[in-house]
Design a protein around this nucleic acid. Structure first.
Lengths: 315, 315
DNA sequence: ATTCCGGATGTTATCGCTAACAAAATTGAG
DNA sequence: CTCAATTTTGTTAGCGATAACATCCGGAAT
């Protein structure tokens, strides 16, 4: 394993100079810098993260707290993780997954927190280390999220464009910002188009919304589109429509939200508002590393535009 | 932050003695040990993983290589990750997720590898660091997997017990050990019960098997159970049955395999052979850490019994 | 020419911990 | 009660890197 010393020897400089080339390149002559770079390349030198961690009193570890129940957890978490991990890896950081609400939170440099609910803000504010939330919040904490309002708009606009006459919003029965934002997007678009909004809400379970739609089937005339707050709900709506003998996508349309996994498992495959989850993950990591570097400096709120994916559940 | 020195001072011993209490407790008097333990408790001492990593030339990082395409990736990966992470955390290890086949594999102490296909064994054998595979293999590498044969048996036996007369195995069209094992379980059970086996195979996509079953609908008399190699396939079979007007679970039965997420999204919810994925993850980690500690010593093959979960897709 | 200044580089100490050796304490055989 | 063998504890050095200070050097000002 090559160390600073090896590089220093080959470049005929002191170890400190090599260290400076890495950490404060501006304080070193260009000439020397080239020498050192060359030596680093020759020897395939990579700094030892642990030694660095020791002097800097850093752990080089970021914890991801998943506050949601694992059983509820949507498959997109995997994408989130990938995004986070890729970004962290580039900066010699490792990830630790924390799922149990084990408050015995060990040593690390910062947290990415996801699956927050109201009650969690209580203890979150006690945290000493830097953190970034995945998912919008209205307490001023730094976060990354999909542009949920825009998502609501995208779906609604598309349904209108495709000529559905009645647009029903199928929301998740949760008092959380992401849900409000999606609804707001729907409402705004409806208003802009002079349409009468209609909202139903349900737990985020395909079977529950399925029964609901089947029970109220008479309320939904032909040429209705269901703009759903999740793919899971959309899946249930699809099943209800098919079970009632409605035809998809001719008589009815269904638009989902999330665009990970379920949209493709559904039948017919869902037209959906896709969130760029891995990108968001990467951004979470980037923001957190920035906070760690800059003494917990506020990073602000990042909102990423979702994308409409057209498949077979709309005409 | 309390260090070895603080503990040593409070216990009136040298730093080395404290270190020994932690790493070689047998080389220290019980009396002194108690003193040290007490001091550690008083000061809430936790060893600094980075310092340790530095002297031991360890990174305290394990990489998880996911060789499958992210888009194909089953949702159970999340459970796997949790299991791995929990175990690693207990031993002060962190996890790094690697999804791109970036051979530029950085520094770590060992790998957990999942999603292996034939062609991967080529380069796997070149690896210098310890590794454990998640998923059975026939090359003698250490692995952890569900008992796939037993899974095949469980599903098949249950279908027989519930009085289905025709049992059709729906396999994944892949030449991989896990698939062979599941089929073998089915075949053996069929033979033991003097029944005629019948196997169909398909890519692991719900829509593909759905069309297949619909096209061959006449081949499946009433009172047939479909024993499937995955929940994804089972989902497609369910849809085909319902689309053809067959009744579930009276006229037909469907049994899935995996038991994560999809089984609950399906309608009717699937009777399935559930793998204890998080447990398997934990075991992977445990084995790997053992290998790391013991100079890459062979750990063998661990097979974990799956469990039949009965829900609404069987009578 | 001498002094002084500031930028470039080197030296030293340190982060927290452990291996290897050294010293001290205990044991027990004669 | 010795003295060597053995066990228990302490001392030193070093893992790989960096911050803080020390030194060196060339050029501007005097």
């Amino acid at each position: 394993m090559t160390t600073l010393k090896d590089v220093a020897d080959q470049a005929h400089v002191s170890r400190m100079t090599v260290s400076r080339v890495i950490n404060h390149p501006d304080k070193v002559t260009d000439e020397v810098k080239q020498l050192v770079y060359q030596a680093m390349k020759n020897l395939d030198y990579h700094p030892n993260a642990m030694a660095r961690a020791l002097v800097n009193n850093r752990t080089q570890i970021v914890k991801l707290l998943v506050l949601e129940e694992m059983t509820t957890v949507e498959p997109y978490y995997m994408n989130l993780l990938t995004g986070i991990s890729k970004e962290l890896e580039e900066h010699q950081y490792a990830l630790q997954l924390v799922t149990e609400n084990s408050f015995e939170i060990g040593t690390c440099d910062g947290y990415i927190i996801t699956g927050m609910r109201h009650e969690d803000y209580q203890w979150i504010k006690e945290l000493k280390l830097p953190f970034v939330l995945f998912g919008e919040n209205r307490y001023g904490y730094d976060f990354v999220d999909s542009d949920n309002k825009m998502g609501g708009q995208l779906g609604t606009e598309y349904a209108i464009k495709r000529g559905y006459e009645h647009l029903i919003y199928v929301g998740i029965d949760l008092a959380e910002p992401f849900e409000y934002s999606r609804e707001a997007g729907y409402l705004q678009t409806m208003q802009e188009n002079g349409l009468e909004p209609q909202i139903i809400r349900s737990d985020n379970h395909s079977t529950q919304i399925q029964s609901f739609v089947m029970e109220h089937w008479n309320d939904y005339p032909e040429n209705t589109a269901f703009v759903c707050a999740s793919d899971r709900l959309a899946l249930g709506v699809e099943r209800a429509i098919l079970a009632q003998g409605g035809s998809l996508p001719d008589q009815y349309g269904v638009i989902g939200h999330d665009g990970v996994f379920l949209d493709q498992v559904a039948f017919p495959q869902l037209t959906t508002v896709k969130q760029e989850v891995d990108k968001m993950g990467g951004l979470c990591a980037k923001m957190l590393l920035e906070k760690i570097k800059n003494n917990n400096q506020v990073q602000g709120q990042c909102v990423i535009a979702p994308q409409l994916i057209v498949r077979d559940s709309t005409k």
